[in-house]
Design a protein around this nucleic acid. Structure first.
Lengths: 111, 111
DNA sequence: AACTAGTATAAATAATCGTTTATATAAATA
DNA sequence: TATTTATATAAACGATTATTTATACTAGTT
């Protein structure tokens, strides 16, 4: 078996939808199949990967399995992203500067 | 051909390494092959996807192609992550509470 | 005890993707 | 003009992965 890193885990749209569901509230496998309109085995296989990557926890309730979110493994992604945050802020800053300049020019032309 | 969303783009380790390189400084294809130890066609094919997703820009310089980073498409990922940030902060908070309690108990035992 | 509900897993498949090899293009150099 | 340098791309291959189908297991329910 292959160890999945967190980036490939969240690359899958259905898995992100599962996480988004669990962010709102804990849910059983059946809950998730109904909310997302995916087959039970598919949900289960995604949940397995999410479990192995530490993003979800399971708690047994009779036949049911109640899944809940543990977002902490996402901090790694957040750390990686934070290096880039400065960059796109530069972009936004430059855009704002540009708009300010435009505004100033417009004003000057009106005088 | 298939449209790649930003999550699958950054799921690939080599592509993240390319982005990390470009974060430090602009680079030609050759620069990247030497820095990352990957074949030229492989670098080029990764760069193509990065270009298509808007994460990099190209500028021609004779035969060379100078690639530079545009981090702004990553804001989408950042927005998605921000929903989860509150969650893992809860975890950290609980951990801190726990440690504080431990400390307090230790102190009380020493008195 | 038979049946139903909820879930996991194994096998099979189809599609996708990373990687290599080979080739084409375009600009610079000799 | 022939050669070299830098890059892109197409074809081929192997590996991985998402998804379906079928099945097994476990805990209630009748």
């Amino acid at each position: 078996m292959i160890l999945h890193d967190i980036y490939t885990i969240i690359a899958e749209p259905s898995r992100r939808r599962i996480l988004d569901c669990l962010l709102r509230s804990d849910a059983t496998v059946k809950d998730l199949t109904e909310e997302l309109g995916l087959s039970q085995p598919l949900i289960s296989s995604h949940l397995r990967l999410l479990r192995e990557s530490g993003l979800v926890r399971v708690q047994a309730d009779a036949q049911r399995r109640i899944y809940s979110l543990d977002a902490s493994p996402l901090t790694g992604v957040d750390d990686w992203l934070s290096t880039y945050r400065a960059k796109w802020n530069q972009h936004v800053d430059r855009l704002e500067e540009h708009l300010d300049r435009q505004k100033r020019i417009k004003k000057e032309n009106l005088q």
